[in-house]
Design a protein around this nucleic acid. Structure first.
Length: 550
RNA sequence: GCGCCCGUAGCUCAGUCGGAUAGAGCCCCCGCCUUCUAAGCGGGUUGUCGCAGGUUCGAGUCCUGCCGGGCGCGCCA
């Protein structure tokens, strides 16, 4: 019996009670059955009686009695106890709980997939780092977290498109182009320009590709450096993300919005809706109607589009492509943007926080010798995605960036990660997987297949713990998706790995020496394979490999 | 000044919808490989959940105020 099935049984028992007793309360659609921390509280517990007591006008323990009586008749439930103020503590039959192993092995890669978000068409935008330099550590965090979120959303039944918004328009690109031109001429970069080593590399690459570039007049040369430089930078970003295991469905160019007329289209739409006005020679969007601090300029008085114009057009474009949920991940340094974006969403007639969702992730600090290091492009202390991968590898890097809540700032200490990699819990999880793979290999060598499965034999306490943990996986994935918190998957995997290691320590899986193969050996092999499936599926959601050997 | 995030063990951090005795890893000490991976397991030590009120059967979790830290408030992008 899975937690979901048990939950259904509890709902049915509640419905039966409400009908029989004529209670004036609504039957909850779902009831949470949780794994109690304390083993004396059974395999699963629910507080549904406590929650219904007040609206029903009955004592919680009285309701608990009525529900318990009905649950005791359910096949697979061994006992139901009432504890404390009115908790229902449910214990399953050993065989019923053990069946879960078969369920998981049969489902294979699909175990953990649910329909929790079925029907949602989600556009997930993340990273979207400017093509004026390599991806730094902050963008790397969003790459890891955003990619994991995309996987978790998909696993929960959502139709997800991942997008990277490529800001190849505007003043920053001009500064980038001027920096390249200056470097090609062996001059100092402009005061507000970019100075890293990569500027030299790109300037050299452009010069190699267009040998006579410096013979052109300034404006033409700058245009060549802009076009070629952005192209090279873009390819570089794509490549490093791909090597990081992060791929996008769409790379969207801001420039296209301006050249295709999408910006004008969006502004005209808003004008028809009555939210656009002219003032001081500029075109404004009246975002204050929807809670913004001040109205926003969309077309500046010099005729150029303000940055938000691109965002307006991009949002409308996503909606017109059929996405009903637009999710954008931004760093904390952009959180001031939420108000105007939500107001913009409302101006289009959409519902803020439903059609548009902005996820804010806190920043990453680079730490050395316990002291924060200020990352500066000029000082060369910027930590890039490639630096991180080179130092610790993709698996450790992705895991370290994904296991913490995005709401917390993250400290990255390269020395710590490189010199004491065991501190990274990814190895703890991967080791559990490799350990199981080894057991399964040994079984194969002994000619022992999974074979017949008798779930009733899995009656050891550690086996019960393991089955209980395995049953949690689908709702961990679903809640990670619903809450947009993929770190929950990582934390769960660490828990599961620990439960497996403790099982392994107490429960011998394969026969020793020349002992005969028993049904218990087979049952435990099923349990091992089920655990391996969950670890592999979970690691995959995080974009981390599940090694067969370590 | 206004807004967002954070404050939980010595360190790094978990702890959705309020639930039972607040957890994990790292660090430190002790024990366990003549049989499936010791990157493991078992045991020991560690807390005014920033502070003060409030809501209720019950608050780390919700509300209010305050303290401390980070970030942000452009016709920049």
């Amino acid at each position: 019996m899975t937690p979901a099935e048990l939950s259904h049984s509890v709902v049915a028992a509640v419905a039966s009670m409400v009908a029989d007793e004529g209670l004036a309360v609504a039957v909850p659609e779902t009831v949470t059955v949780e794994r109690p921390k304390n083993k004396e509280h059974g395999d699963y517990a629910t507080n549904v009686a406590l929650q219904l007591a007040k609206p029903a006008g009955r004592a919680p323990r009285q309701l608990a009695d009525l529900i318990a009586a009905r649950l005791r008749d359910v096949e697979g439930i061994a006992s139901v106890d009432i504890a404390g103020p009115g908790f229902l503590n449910i214990t399953l039959d050993v065989a019923s709980q053990g069946e879960l192993a078969r369920t998981i092995v049969s489902a294979g890669k699909n175990y953990g997939h649910t329909e929790a978000l079925a029907g949602h068409r989600i556009n997930l935008e993340f990273v979207s780092a400017n093509p004026t330099g390599p991806i730094h550590i902050g963008g790397t965090r969003w790459a890891a977290v955003g990619d994991a979120l995309g996987r978790v959303l998909s696993a929960s039944g959502a139709d997800v498109a991942r997008e990277y918004y490529f800001n190849d328009h505007g003043a920053q690109i001009d500064r980038f182009a001027r920096s390249l031109l200056a470097r090609a001429r062996k001059q100092e970069p402009p005061e507000d320009g970019y100075g890293g080593e990569y500027i030299t590399e790109i300037a050299d690459a452009v010069t190699a590709k267009v040998p006579d570039v410096l013979d052109h007049p300034d404006d033409e040369a700058q245009e060549i450096f802009r076009r070629e430089g952005v192209e090279l930078m873009f390819a570089e970003i794509k490549r490093s993300l791909h090597e990081f295991g992060v791929d996008f469905d769409v790379f969207f160019h801001e420039n296209d919005l301006h050249e295709s007329g999408a910006v004008d289209h969006a502004i005209e739409r808003l004008r028809k809706l009555g939210h656009i006005y002219e003032h001081d020679g500029a075109t404004w969007l009246r975002t204050t109607d929807f809670g913004d601090d001040k109205d926003r300029v969309v077309i500046k008085s010099d005729g150029n589009a303000a940055y938000i114009a691109g965002d307006l057009a991009y949002y409308l474009n996503k909606r017109e492509r059929g996405f009903d949920q637009v999710i954008i991940m931004l760093g904390a340094d952009h959180h001031g943007y939420i108000g105007r974006m939500m107001a913009m969403c409302a101006c289009f007639g959409d519902t803020p926080h439903e059609n548009l969702e902005i996820l804010i992730g806190q920043l990453v600090n680079l730490v050395k010798d316990g002291q924060p290091v200020r990352m500066s492009k000029r000082a060369g202390t910027v930590l890039t995605l490639e630096d991180l991968v080179e130092a610790v590898g993709v698996d450790a890097a992705r895991y370290a960036l994904t296991r913490s809540s995005a709401d917390s700032t993250l400290d990255i200490d390269l020395d710590l990660l490189t010199s004491r990699t065991n501190e990274n819990p990814v190895f703890y999880v991967q080791y559990a997987h490799a350990r199981i793979a080894s057991v399964l290999r040994n079984a194969a060598e002994l000619g022992i297949a999974l074979g017949e499965f008798n779930p009733a034999l899995l009656d050891h306490e550690r086996e019960g713990d393991l089955l209980g943990a395995l049953g949690e996986f689908p709702r961990v994935v679903a809640s990670s998706a619903e809450l947009r918190e993929p770190h929950r998957v990582a934390r769960y995997l660490e828990e599961l790995a620990g439960v497996y290691h403790r099982f392994y320590d107490m429960c011998r899986v394969l026969p020793m020496g020349d002992e005969p193969v028993t049904d218990l050996n087979h049952a435990r092999l099923w349990l091992c394979e089920a655990t391996r499936v969950v670890l592999a599926n979970g690691l995959d959601l995080l974009g981390v490999s599940a090694p067969e050997r370590m």
